[in-house]
């Protein structure tokens, strides 16, 4: 056959090497991103829209669950917060990825809704010296 390049159709050792490189990249990026974040402690959920923080929920201060509603770019998202988790329970965005993400429970985790440009992130609040209120 006269292709521009004839492809090799059987996997070989070089392919294994390429796969290994991807695995190493996954592990290294995972190690870099997921370590160092405070594991336990009180969690704060930070909700931001278009890169700007719009809400901050001190999860430790909740007893039951609390639902809050966010509006962004014409979409409405219902987010349910509990003492230890945050979850998008309903959204009218077309992709529904945010709903499918389910509950996040660890510091550093996040739920992203691209159509609404909304992000729910969990932050650890091990730092008890942080202020209760900020002005300015």
């Amino acid at each position: 056959m006269r292709m521009k390049w004839s492809p090799e159709l059987h996997p070989n050792g070089w392919d294994a090497l390429a796969a290994a490189v991807v695995v190493v990249l996954a592990l290294v990026s995972g190690a870099l991103l997921y370590t160092g974040g405070p594991g336990g402690g009180d969690l704060t959920a930070v909700v931001s829209v278009d890169g700007g923080e719009t809400d901050r929920v001190d999860l430790a201060a909740l007893t039951g669950s609390e639902e809050r509603v966010y509006e962004s770019r014409g979409y409405t998202l219902r987010v349910t917060f509990t003492e230890s988790s945050a979850q998008v329970t309903a959204s009218d965005c077309p992709t529904q990825d945010c709903v499918h993400t389910g509950a996040i429970t660890r510091s550093g985790q996040s739920i992203v809704c691209l159509p609404a440009r909304l992000i729910v992130e969990l932050e650890g609040t091990g730092d008890t010296d942080g202020p209760d209120v900020v002005i300015g």
Binding site: V22, L25, L27
Partner: peptide
């Protein structure tokens, strides 16, 4: 870039694994 937030980076390891 579009979100102006580094949160999506956290998906990278999983996405790389899935791409295998």
């Amino acid at each position: 870039l579009t979100l102006g937030n580094e949160a999506p980076l956290y998906y990278l390891p999983v996405l790389l694994g899935v791409s295998l």
